[in-house]
């Protein structure tokens, strides 16, 4: 219990450090998502990798910034950005996927996606 109280008393001392560490974690997640987008064989699989960036990468970066922020207005702005991202992100992803589907683009499915025959040349 005393440890917990000391922990809370030093909140403003460790807060920026925790925020910076979360930002680094978020940046790593963003890079991982981008690596997936560059690596994956066709459009539909790339979409999944992009959504890693949009969800966990953005969340931990914004959370880290929130821990570093100097006042409450900044925290509120970060929360607003987060909510907008989580509402518009899946909608935009679905719009792109639906447009590709309506245009007649066929996904590479099954084990074929792993091989070198997977790459579908675009029009």
């Amino acid at each position: 219990m005393e440890i917990w109280e000391a922990f809370l008393a030093n909140f403003h001392a460790w807060r920026p450090w925790a925020g910076a560490l979360l930002c680094v974690l978020g940046a790593v997640l963003v890079v991982i998502g981008t690596v997936g987008v560059v690596r994956f064989p066709d459009f539909y699989t790339r979409m999944h990798a992009a959504s890693v960036t949009d969800t966990s990468g953005a969340t931990s970066l914004l959370l880290g910034m929130g821990l570093m922020s100097p006042d409450l207005v900044t925290v509120f702005k970060l929360a607003a950005i987060w909510v907008f991202l989580f509402l518009t992100g899946p909608t935009a992803t679905h719009a792109i996927a639906n447009a590709a589907h309506v245009a007649g683009m066929q996904p590479v499915t099954g084990a074929r996606a792993r091989g070198d025959v997977g790459e579908r040349e675009g029009d």
């Binding site: 987008v37 792109i96 590709a100 245009a103 675009g122």
Partner: peptide, 23 residues
């Protein structure tokens, strides 16, 4: 290779730009 890859990339690009602006 396709238009949709590019749109997806630009969309993701903008999300990262926004995060970079905050950083």
């Amino acid at each position: 290779p396709t238009l949709y890859d590019r749109v997806l990339a630009v969309n993701s690009f903008s999300t990262k730009t926004l995060l970079l602006l905050g950083m």
